[in-house]
C-alpha cells in the first residue's frame, strides 16, 4: 500500500532526473536547469516525507530507533550533499562535473531506493497495518 505510493514517487524522481540529464546532454541548458530544479525539489520533498512523518511514526510504533530508519537518514544526508554539489556544478557551468557527480548520485540513489523498497517500506506497511491510507493522505498533504 504505502510501498506502492513511495515506489511511484521514486520513479517520478528518476524520471525528472533523466529528463534533466538528457536535456543537458542535448545542450539545452535552460531546460536542464529547470528540470534539475524540479528533481532537486521532488527528491528533497521525498526525503522530508520520510524523515518528518513516515520514519517517526514507524519508530514510535515499533520502538526501532537506531535501525534501518537511521541508516536511511544517513544516506539522505549524503544524497542531499550530492544534490547540492550537482546544483553548484550546473550553475557554474561545469557540466562534465555535473555528469560525473550525477553518475555517483544515480547509483547511490538507486541502491538507496532499492533498500527502502525491498526492506523498509514492507516493514513500515506492516507496522501501519490499517492506517496506511491515512499516512498516505498525510504525506500528500505535506507542503512541497
Amino acid at each position: 500500500m504505502l510501498l506502492e505510493f513511495m515506489r511511484d514517487d521514486h520513479r517520478a524522481c528518476d524520471h525528472l532526473y533523466t529528463e534533466a540529464e538528457n536535456a543537458l546532454a542535448d545542450k539545452k541548458v535552460d531546460e536542464a536547469k529547470k528540470l534539475f530544479g524540479a528533481f532537486y525539489r521532488a527528491t528533497n520533498h521525498h526525503f522530508d516525507m520520510e524523515e518528518k512523518e513516515l520514519f517517526i511514526t514507524f519508530e514510535k510504533r515499533t520502538g526501532m530507533m537506531g535501525g534501518p530508519t537511521q541508516m536511511m537518514r544517513y544516506e539522505h544526508q549524503q544524497l542531499r550533499a550530492l544534490l547540492e554539489s550537482m546544483l553548484r556544478s550546473l550553475n557554474e557551468e561545469k557540466y562534465d562535473d555535473f555528469f560525473g557527480q550525477g553518475e555517483s548520485m544515480m547509483i547511490m540513489l538507486q541502491q538507496h531506493n532499492m533498500k527502502e523498497e525491498q526492506m523498509l517500506y514492507p516493514m513500515i506497511d506492516r507496522a501501519l497495518s490499517g492506517d496506511a491510507e491515512l499516512m498516505i493522505q498525510r504525506l500528500k498533504d505535506m507542503p512541497q
Binding site: 533523466t18 529528463e19 540529464e21 555528469f99 544515480m106
Partner: peptide, 12 residues
C-alpha cells in the same frame, strides 16, 4: 536489447 534501446537515460 529492447530495454537498453528504450532506456530513459540517453547519455552515452
Amino acid at each position: 536489447v529492447k530495454r537498453l534501446r528504450s532506456r530513459k537515460r540517453r547519455v552515452s
